[in-house]
């Protein structure tokens, strides 16, 4: 029983970060119909930058986080402008381009930051005795709270502000939105940057726990794809629920089946969902 509670806690904590990262994929897919293979590379970028700013420039934890997020946003905009924009309307082309981009960026990280893991400083240290049952790292708890907060802010912005309405309008019906005077190219541009920021935010939250190495990005991207397919490609709520489910399933699987198969469970879910309900748990329509 105590075990189960520990695994569930860990599942929810990890799942929240998965959700944060997957929201970025859901946003980019929803607005632009683009699957960005290099999504996880922005997670890695944020991790590296926050570690570098903190250690090399001796900035505090929060200024370095803010600066890294800003950098990730601009890099995202540049990528959109020069690599994604020429592929509009051709999903296969964008997939190939972002796949190559992922290989380039992964190897650039190796070139620039070396193969060693880098880690931004912990925000807090030590651990808590949760429910009087087991010890749990404080950093994990703080990361969890931060990720949950960021997700809430994102959902509020999406549903309560003008900007959110425009994004949702474009996601639901591009032509209609452009007839109503929204500039879809500009929304694409901005949404891609924002999607990258969400991946970066997940990186900021998780890298104090799991230091970054050049090769983690692709795993992050794949996890986010699984979450988005599970939740439904056109659903932001789906990404959140999907993230939590995946986190819990992975941790229960590791505990009761095998730790080597941790990432297998996600892909089995992916194929099952595509087979049984291609629109995902909360999706309404198939993505064409």
């Amino acid at each position: 029983m105590v075990d189960l509670l520990l695994y569930l806690t860990n599942g929810i904590v990890m799942g929240t970060s998965y959700a944060l990262c997957a929201l970025g994929v859901a946003l980019v897919v929803g607005v632009m119909r683009v699957i960005n293979f290099a999504h996880g590379e922005f997670y890695v970028l944020a991790g590296y930058l926050s570690a570098t700013f903190a250690s090399a420039l001796h900035l505090g934890i929060f200024p370095s986080i803010a600066m890294s997020i800003l950098c990730v946003f601009f890099v995202g905009l540049v990528v959109e402008r020069f690599l994604i924009r020429p592929t509009y309307g051709n999903e296969m082309y964008s997939l190939i381009i972002t796949f190559i981009l992922y290989i380039i960026v992964e190897n650039l990280y190796l070139f620039i930051f070396g193969p060693y893991p880098q880690k931004p400083p912990n925000w807090v240290s030590g651990s808590q005795n949760l429910f009087g049952l087991f010890y749990y790292g404080n950093q994990r708890l703080v990361s969890f709270v931060t990720a949950a907060l960021l997700i809430s802010i994102f959902l509020v912005v999406l549903h309560k502000t003008w900007l959110g309405r425009v994004i949702r309008a474009v996601a639901i019906d591009r032509e209609m939105a452009s007839l109503l005077g929204v500039n879809p190219t500009r929304i694409n541009f901005f949404s891609f940057g924002l999607g990258c920021v969400l991946a970066g935010a997940a990186g900021i939250v998780l890298t104090p726990i799991f230091p970054v190495v050049p090769t983690v990005g692709v795993g992050i991207s794949l996890t986010a794809f699984v979450v988005v397919v599970l939740g439904g490609m056109d659903s932001f709520l789906g990404a959140v629920v999907g993230g939590l489910i995946l986190g819990i399933v992975e941790n229960l699987g590791v505990a009761y089946i095998s730790s080597g198969y941790k990432h297998l469970f996600g892909f089995v879910i992916l194929i099952l969902v595509l087979f049984l309900k291609p629109t995902g748990l909360f999706g309404h329509r198939q993505f064409q």
């Binding site: 520990l6 860990n10 990890m14 799991f210 941790n251 505990a255 730790s259 080597g260 941790k262």
Partner: peptide
């Protein structure tokens, strides 16, 4: 216990 060289989260094994 046998573990994966690249794995990052060891809470379940540590438990």
């Amino acid at each position: 216990l046998v573990t994966e060289r690249k794995s990052q989260d060891h809470y379940a094994e540590l438990n």
